[in-house]
Design a binder for these strands. Structure first.
Lengths: 227, 227
DNA sequence: TTCTAAAATTAGCTGGCCCTAATTCCTTTG
DNA sequence: CAAAGGAATTAGGGCCAGCTAATTTTAGAA
């Protein structure tokens, strides 16, 4: 009765699964409108697709409540995440893409490449663990290490941390951050912070900076010992 | 009134245009059934699409006669041919694909890559003129040099030629040919030929071979001086 | 010149996936 | 606890691109 995973997923289905994966990262199940906003679709379109996908066993739908990926759905989603991140890494490493331009290219290619090509790229790259934004790359078998980093907004004043991950795919934000040296690997000290979601004063690799709260919240850092 | 080329073409449309381009290489206009066979579709599906494409100005359709690409349609088709051949060349050069496995990968990717990525690949390859099968690669501006080669079946006995192009994308044929050293660049002498589409006796880079007529017809050669 | 077979087209459907408008369901608050 | 407001769903369409079956056109053979 359970659908065996032989049937190929359409581009749309792959997008839905990946979206639901991202929206469920914090554990709660994803709502129809939430998915609709993420994919820039109307909510009724999502209801319809969600119905089809639960019938296929790719997700669990409790009407009026929300959806969660099944094991099968999660496997398919992680496969897309791996593809996307390997592609981004390869395009930056070998084909002169920058981290602010690579997202949309990978977004299209992830639906078209074969598993073989992805594994060849991964091999050429030495099986990287993270992509250019610091996002972890799932293994080919579907396991992923979501490391626990601290948003820069929660780093205590005076503490010095290493920037590990930049949690956005908006080209303009990424460009701005890159111009200010805020890339994975940067050493950042929080010199001061204004209240009420105010700007942070930073020292970035020896240079003083002021950074808005919204952007700072996207910067995930490894603190010296705190876990 | 003429459609400006702003609107993006669907995957299907790109496939139709490319198919019609290939089928029209010999000058005659392509028939519905011919296109249907090439794309593995039913003839009525082709009639319908052809109607839409002529309305869009991508091709000229004379009902019950056949179709031809318009200038606009040819431009779009050549863009796809360029993409396909650059991709094949890149995948073989950098990602360990062999000429018998690369076709289907390129067939999917050609619809997903950006112009930017294709030009980066072309640059990395040094702007190659031909792909791994010896097929000419159109320029970015859409000009293509279809060189006049002679099928091996028409090379006179005793003549020695250079194999330049292998005109098939069937993986099994390509594998067989590769195993027998029959790749672009090989030096081939026609030692003998049997009548009635019989096999050819060849000397391939110093090794004796017998090759069936059907395969020999796919091997396009540069003759010493003949044109 | 007429007949016939092949080629092409038309008629009528289907499935996937999107939409807007209308309705139903939940939850929260007055 | 009832009503409101937002979230979700249902109802009803549309477009794309494929299909089969039936029909029309063309061209070649008798």
């Amino acid at each position: 009765m359970t659908a065996t995973h032989a049937e190929t997923l359409t581009r749309s289905v792959e997008d839905y699964l990946k979206a639901i994966y991202h929206l469920s990262l914090d554990g709660h199940s994803a709502g129809t409108t939430e998915i609709a906003n993420f994919l820039e679709l109307a909510p009724p379109s999502v209801t319809g697709m969600v119905k089809r996908l639960s019938e296929q066993g790719l997700l669990e739908h409790v009407p009026y409540k929300g959806v969660q990926l099944t094991t099968q759905g999660r496997r398919a989603a992680l496969r897309m995440v791996r593809r996307h991140r390997i592609l981004e890494t390869y395009l930056v490493a070998y084909l002169h893409f920058t981290w602010d331009t690579v997202h949309e290219e990978a977004e299209r290619l992830e639906h078209a490449v074969s598993d073989t090509l992805i594994e060849r790229m991964a091999l050429a790259l030495g099986n990287p663990r993270v992509d250019p934004h610091g996002d972890p790359i799932p293994d080919a078998d579907g396991s992923i290490a979501e490391l626990l980093y601290t948003p820069l907004t929660e780093v205590p004043e005076g503490e010095s941390v290493e920037l590990r991950r930049v949690d956005t795919s908006h080209a303009d934000r990424l460009r701005y951050l890159a111009e200010h040296g805020l890339r994975p690997g940067a050493r950042v000290t929080v010199a001061g912070r204004e209240p009420f979601h105010g700007p942070l004063s930073l020292d970035v690799d020896g240079t003083g900076q002021v950074l808005g709260y919204e952007l700072a919240a996207l910067l995930l850092c490894a603190r010296p010992e705190a876990r």
